[in-house]
Amino acid sequence: MSALPMIAGALIAAPLPVAAINWHSLFFLLFASVSCGFAVAVVAADNVVRMAFYLVLSLGATAGLFFLAGAEFLGAMQLMIYVGGTLVLLVFGVMLTAQAPLVAIKGSGRDRVLAGIVGVALLALLLQAAFSVKPWRAPAAGVVAEPAATPIGMSLVGVRVDEPAVGAPAANKRPGYMLPFEIVSIHLLVVLVGAAYLARAKRRKVPRAIEVAASVEPPASVAEHASIGRERHRSGSVLAGGRP
């Protein structure tokens, strides 16, 4: 009746010498489980600092998945911009706002149930879609991919080098990415200015030294009071430099 020894026995008896293991798949399984597991942990956790930490692990493992899929440049980009930049920024924000009552704000039980139902429904739909197309389930064998860093760089300046250039029908031509690249550059500049404007230091009414002394350690009573009532508390954050 005991199922566990039977499964264990089956595992041992199954014709699976170690040589049959596909290491690519094994590492995929490893990264995928870390990625998905910690993504779910982000949802399940209440403490916002832990959420940030789980998110770091999840996105780091996703970078590993990118490396496995042959997208080396993208994986390094993910590590550098996402994990090293965006998430550090996020953790920075968490730490600036991490006062005791704000660290763990819990949603209501009704919300959780609703979100769970919607989530499971959505997941079922997406999984069904993932397995519905046959070519997506058939892996390629023995493909040696060219490293993609150079083609990506060239495509960003508008030249595609990853396709047969001569004699190919015009319909198969793929465009370069010069214009999107420029647009994104301008966009980043605008965002930079905008973010600096939003988080800038407002006009000060008190001398800076006093203000910094006051803002470094927000009195616990103020924070509690503010979280119960609606008063605007007196001290701004260190980053923004003051109250409006």
């Binding site: 798949s25 995928a32 998905c36 496995l68 997406l126 999984l127 389930r137 892996p139």
Partner: peptide
């Protein structure tokens, strides 16, 4: 899962869960 090569569907599952 371990013995067969990975296909697009595997990645789609991960993407769906995320």
């Amino acid at each position: 899962l371990i013995t067969e090569p990975v296909s697009v569907a595997h990645y789609l599952v991960v993407g769906a869960i995320l």
